[in-house]
Write a protein that binds this DNA or RNA. Structure first.
Lengths: 330, 330
DNA sequence: TTGAAAGCGCTACCAT
DNA sequence: ATGGTAGCGCTTTCAA
């Protein structure tokens, strides 16, 4: 392996000089610089980032933790696109990314990241308090994305789930659906809680409500959607619309409704939340609420870099607006 | 930050001793060991992996390069699940993962990985020759997954695309579809080439062929499927089945066919390839050829570890069988 | 069993 | 503008 010492010898200068021109710090005579650069290229030199990080205390690595309760992890319909944006934006800024998936509550993943001397971290979804504490103690800047709980003194990027759900309900009402069933994701999660609250708020603002037998709380997976849609459509008092608080459950519901030989939206309307990639590809195309996942990831990265560069402008909380996307299922 | 020196002081031993017990190398008195361990825990010590890597020449990091020509990168319907398996399996083995996306042909991504002193690499899909050379020169073990081209002296994991497509054609024939249209992905890619060849072989074995006006070569994206399905269904001589050489194009075709008011499979049958997550959720559910993406990722990892541990058993080439999954679209 | 010392490849400080 | 030197945190000889 070629080191700066090899270059120093070949170029007839000291390794300090080589380091200076290669790292761009300090000045030197133009011709010295050129010579070093030339030799470095000839020898096919590649800096050892570990050695560099040892002394600069900057690894150039950003850690990303995705807490998954369900498969898939990386290819997740919601978090996948966020990761996409994170990877793209981080790369642009010259950082590398260490991705860890962890479903433990041990904070094990974050310790691994710390050991790798990451410069900063982005934490998606479910973030145990304990894990946060670790980063705070070690003074590692981090940004939460779509976090389950509010964490004080942390920066986070979330979607406006309350208003999104509010608008969703208003959309259904505007289409004259009034007997609405609601399939929720787990209410421990901030976003599902807010969606539920926002949806109800809109309904009651117009004098409607969701009957208790038209409510279900699931686990956010497709199978949940299938299961509850079946239950609802077996009821004597059938809903005229089903709202699922994420697209995967809506898609599950759609499977069941097809299976039962009913038509969407004629027999029952269907609406989801998230606008995952496939929402527009279902048949009929799914009406849903768009969450700007790309923006979430991108903002997380720029926020983190602001933190890293000490340009934190104190805006802890970023709430992205969501938007109702009307397609064919309502 | 707590270092082994802090522990050494607190435990009243030398840092060599601390290193020995913490890294598990060398022996020492039981009580010394316990004391060191205790102190390390008390001080909340975390090893600095960079420092360790500097001397051991093992970073504990595996690099993964995904060459993407299209969005999404990470959340890709085909490569996403492979990445999932890679992440999961690598973690089990105690390695961390550095993921890089790159659409350049510069080999830039691999240089970055090399600079991070990765122990090994997994390269997905499109892999420029030049990039391979870099790893070979530096003597970094690597495994190719679903690689575009055959690369001599490299380990790779691919799917049996030829046979998969052969079986696909046989399936269509068995359902008495004979006027089959074929939408291909880019033929520079090994898998699309083999799918095309396998499909044709089966057809001609039974005395059929694909008419030239029933052939199209696209870019593997959904839009391509939409476009060509439209063309085919406008033809005077309509196909009775459309085979798309990946699911995304098939799903695109499905959109168009719905849009044109035709029924699948009554008016035209439809079949894809890959069995992406969403294939079973289309309406009607898509008949396709399953590629075991999870296994591909898993095998890549175990192969790489065999290489890393010097247990290479010389099996350069791993071809996974694929399987026709009959659903409702044929 | 343990400690002292060297050194991984690099940067940064202090001289010159 | 350049070189010498110290040192980042760790492992690994080599002695004791």
């Amino acid at each position: 392996m070629v080191t700066i010492i090899d270059i120093a010898k070949a170029a007839g200068v000291s390794k300090s000089t080589v380091s200076r021109v290669l790292s761009g710090n300090g000045s030197c005579k133009k011709e010295t610089k050129e010579k070093v650069l030339k030799v470095a290229k000839e020898l096919n030199y590649k800096p050892n980032r570990l050695a560099r990080a040892m002394v600069t205390k900057k690894s150039g690595i950003i850690g990303v933790i995705i807490y998954r309760k369900h498969m898939p992890i990386i290819a997740h319909p919601f978090y996948g696109p966020i990761l996409d944006a994170i990877v793209t934006e981080t790369k642009k800024a010259g950082y590398s990314i260490l991705i860890l998936a962890d479903d433990e509550v041990t904070g094990e993943a974050s310790i691994e990241l710390l050991e790798h001397q990451i410069d900063g971290a982005i934490l998606l979804s479910r973030v145990p308090e304990q894990l946060i504490t670790i980063f705070q103690e070690q003074n590692i800047p981090f940004v939460l994305v779509n976090n389950t709980n509010m964490v004080k003194n942390s920066n986070y990027i979330v979607n406006d789930d309350y208003l999104g759900a509010y608008d969703a309900a208003m959309h259904l009402l505007s289409k004259h659906y009034t007997k609405i069933a609601y399939i929720s994701g787990p209410l421990e999660h901030r976003s599902y809680r807010l969606r539920w609250e926002g949806f109800q708020a809109a309904l009651s603002a117009k004098g409607y409500e969701i009957k208790h037998y038209h409510r279900a709380i699931g686990d956010s997976k497709m199978e949940t959607g299938m299961e509850y849609a079946y239950k609802f459509m077996q009821l004597e008092e059938r809903p005229d619309a089903i709202f699922a608080s994420n697209d995967m459950m809506a898609i599950g519901a759609m499977q069941t409704i097809h299976f039962m030989g009913m038509k969407i939206p004629d027999d029952v309307a269907l609406m989801g939340f998230d606008d995952i990639e496939f929402a527009k590809l279902t048949f009929p195309a799914l009406t849903t609420v768009r969450v700007d996942k790309k923006k979430m990831g991108g903002l997380a990265v720029s926020k983190l870099f602001a933190l890293l560069n000490g340009e934190d402008f104190g805006m802890k909380k970023t709430i992205l607006p969501s938007e109702v996307i009307v397609r064919k299922s309502t």
